[in-house]
Amino acid sequence: MNIFRLAGDMTHLLSILVLLLKIYATKSCSGISRKTQELYAIVFMARYLDLFTDFISVYNTFMKLIFIASSLAIVWCMRFHPVVRRSYDRELDTFRYFFLVGASFALALVWHDKFTLQEVFWAFSIYLEAVAILPQLVLLQRSGNVDNLTGQYVFFLGAYRAFYILNWIYRYMTEPRFTRWIAGISGVVQTALYADFFYYYFISWKNNSKLKLPA
């Protein structure tokens, strides 16, 4: 474990806590893409198939459970919670994400570490996570003004993978024969998708103005 990866995991956890705070405090999920939340639930369930077979550490198992439980809880809230579900931007959250799932799985069948169920699903989860934010970014562009907690949620979610890139660079430089091509290339693509959001987020922070993404 190195400082970059710890910072990445803590930033990821923070993004989830901010999202839970927004939904709990405002009893609203306006501005949040349910499709992105569902994609993340799929990402975690596909990535952590080894949850009960490979024990890495208490920290690793604990965080996997947190990620799976929180993503499923958020999807449940947005679908079934009597108050929260009413604020879902159904008519704005229309990204046809089935293509993202299909393309990620097709790519995982072609490019993976080993052709085993666990490795193919792991690669699938890596590719799917790289594009999982797209429905959310599209929703932000359509929904005009973005409330602070939603903006912070997306910011931390994008920042965590940037820390992971620093972690892979650090490990590549300090560990012999360390390679993470699948996660590394996907992580760069994933972080690049946030580039314009980071730009407008920085502008809104510098000008102390409302975060607004151009349509």
């Binding site: 993470r180 091509w181 699948i182 996660a183």
Partner: peptide, 10 residues
């Protein structure tokens, strides 16, 4: 041991 890619990370 050659750890398969990525399985010690979240």
């Amino acid at each position: 041991t050659e750890q398969p890619e990525g399985h010690d990370e979240l």
